[in-house]
Every structure is written in C-alpha cells, then in structure tokens.
Amino acid sequence: MSAVWTIARKETRTAVRNSMFVTITVLFLGLSVLSAYIGSTTKHAEMRIYNETVAKLTVQGVTQLPPKPEIHALTMLGNLTEYVAIVGAILSVMLGYDAITRERESGGLQLILTRPVFRDRLITGKLLGNGLVIAMLLGIVFVFNLALLFLVGHAVPTFGEIARVALFIVAAFAYMMVFLITSMLLSINMKSSASVFLVSLVLWMTSAFVLPQMAQTLMANSTVVNSVSGATNQIPQDTAVSRAIDLLSPTWHLRSIGGKLLEVTPGSAALSSAALSTEFLKSLFALLVPCIVLGALMYASFLRSESLTVE
C-alpha cells in the first residue's frame, strides 16, 4: 500500500506544479465568483422590479397583487453545473492525458517497473493521486461557493442548501473521474500525449454537446396553441430513443442532477428530501457505471501491455 501512496503523492505534487493546471484551476474559481455575482445581481434585480411593480399597483389602488417571485438562494450558483461540465472535464483530461505517455516518454515508467512494485499499484497510485487532486479542487469549490453565497448573495445557507451543494460536489467528482479514467485509459493505449489529449477532448465534446443535441433532435414535439393570441408553440417531449441517447452522456447526467440540486430546474426546490435523494442516487449510479467499466478496461490494458516498456 505504501507504494500506492508514494505514487499518489508524486502525482499530486506534479499536478500542483503544472502551471497550465494551476491557471485553469484559478480560472475555474474566478468563473465561480463571476457566476455568483451575476446570480446575485439577477436575484436583486428581480426583487427590485417586483417591489417597484407592487408599489405602483398599490398607489393605483389595486388590491390583487402579483405573487412574490420564487427566488432561491442556490440558483445563484446555477452556472456551477456548466463550469464543472466544461472546465472540470478539461481539468480531468489534463490530469490524465499524459499519466502514462509522459512516463513512457521520459523513461520513468521503466524505472518504476524495475522496482519491487506490482503493476496494479502503479496505476492505482496514479488514479488515487489524480483523484485526490480533483477531490481537493472540488473541496475548494465547495467552500468557495458557500462563502460566495454568503458574501455576494448575502444569504446564510441553510443546512438543506449546504447538503444540496455537497451532493452536487459528489456528483461532480464522479463526473470528473469519468474523464480522468477515460484519458488515463487512452494514455495507456496510445503513443503520443497530444493524440490522447485530442481524442479525450473529442470524447468529452461528444458527451457534452453531440449526444444531448442528437437526443434533442429525436424528441417528439407537441404543438400547443395559445387560445388568446392564437400563436403556436412547440413543446419538445422525450421519446424512448432520445432518452436512451441522453443516458449515454455523463454530461447530461451532471446537468440533470445539477439543475435539481442547485434549484435551477423548475419545481426542484420543492422536491422532498427522499425524491431528491432518489434522483441523486440515480444520477450517481449513471456516472459511476462508466467509471467502473472504463476503470476495469484501464487496469486490464495496463497489466497486459508490454509495449509500455519496450518502445
């Protein structure tokens, strides 16, 4: 086990010294500030408009006032889902794309494999080390965003809100691990780091954009006619095929659960704890399945691949 920790520590140390990785991490946190600020401004603007409307109506003697807009504090962090979906995935790819190719190119892999260490320990150490980096990053994001909620949004988060953000962070971790493991798997099986990076990004874009768009195209549209204006609106509805395509996309799962946990999806703020937990577990399961399948492939490839050392 000590060999695993030794390798994990080295991976962590190398990642935090990588200037590109640090830059993207800072960008990620910077986007959180911007997102919280925009969310807070929007929230205050909505309330200001409502208050002005109510004041005008009261002056006019109107007694039936419009209902107060439902503004949930967590909505302010709504963009976090997109940041994790995009920047988080890129960070994961950056951590994993040269995990093995870099070792192979530098000759470090040969040095490690001539030590009394089982091959599986090496890959476990790398996975653990990079997983720890992701966990640390998301830990910072968690604390940082709760602090922003308080400082920028002037809202003291309730226990329920903290729990929702925490669950989102867990889902984000599983999501980022999918792309870490994918890039590590490619790194074992491909020769150049640049190719691994490129293919990893293509796979991520497929997950983030292509699959959801395909699913949207295959949705059934029902037409609704407005009885007053006569205008027609098309309302897309899931079909079995579109739903199946969505289920293949880790990014769709993250967006789906992120929207519910961060109260962006309409009606999600009113979901009971049990309903929300069920939704969360379903999404987590959907994110863990590719982690397990790709992880098993990664171990199998690494353990039987001699080309890692002889090229």
Binding site: A3, R13, E105, S106, G107, I112, P116
Partner: peptide, 23 residues
C-alpha cells in the same frame, strides 16, 4: 536506462525520495 529524464518538475531530492520509497 539509456535516456534518463526523470521528473522535471521535481527536485533531485524529491525524485530520489520517490524511487527510494518505491524500493
């Protein structure tokens, strides 16, 4: 090996510590 490049981001001490611990 013929071309030893080790880990460029790490110091000599950190590189050697890594291999010593593995051994």
């Amino acid at each position: 090996p013929e071309n030893v490049r080790l880990y460029n981001d790490l110091t000599v001490d950190e590189n050697l510590r890594f291999f010593a611990e593995l051994s």
